Amino acid sequence: MINVPLDSVDASPCAALAIGTDYTFGTLLDTHSHRRAQFLYGMTGLMEVGTEEGAWVVPPYTGVWIPAQKPHRVRMNGVSTRSVYVLPESAPR
Rank of each mutant, 00 (worst) to 15 (best):
M1W: 10
N3A: 07
V4H: 06
V4K: 13
P5F: 02
L6E: 06
L6A: 05
D10G: 05
A11T: 07
S12K: 02
P13L: 10
C14H: 14
A15M: 03
A16D: 03
A16W: 00
L17F: 05
A18D: 06
I19F: 04
G20K: 06
T21S: 11
Y23L: 08
Y23V: 06
T24P: 08
F25R: 07
F25L: 10
T27W: 13
L28W: 14
L29C: 00
T31E: 15
H32E: 12
H34Q: 08
R35H: 13
R35C: 07
A37D: 00
A37G: 11
A37L: 00
Q38E: 14
Q38C: 12
Q38L: 10
Q38M: 10
Q38D: 08
F39P: 01
L40N: 04
Y41N: 03
G42T: 12
T44M: 06
T44I: 08
L46T: 15
L46F: 09
M47Y: 09
M47A: 14
M47G: 13
M47V: 09
E48F: 13
E48H: 15
E48V: 15
V49Q: 02
V49T: 04
G50E: 15
E53P: 01
E53L: 07
A55W: 06
W56Q: 10
W56E: 08
V57Y: 10
V57L: 15
V58A: 08
V58L: 14
Y61Q: 15
T62H: 14
T62F: 11
G63E: 05
V64Y: 03
V64H: 01
W65S: 01
Q69I: 02
P71L: 04
P71C: 06
H72F: 09
R73W: 15
R73N: 13
V74W: 10
V74G: 07
M76G: 00
N77S: 13
T81S: 12
T81N: 05
R82E: 02
Y85T: 02
Y85S: 03
V86Q: 00
L87Y: 03
L87M: 11
L87R: 15
P88S: 05
P88N: 05
E89P: 06
A91W: 03
P92W: 12
R93A: 11
R93K: 06
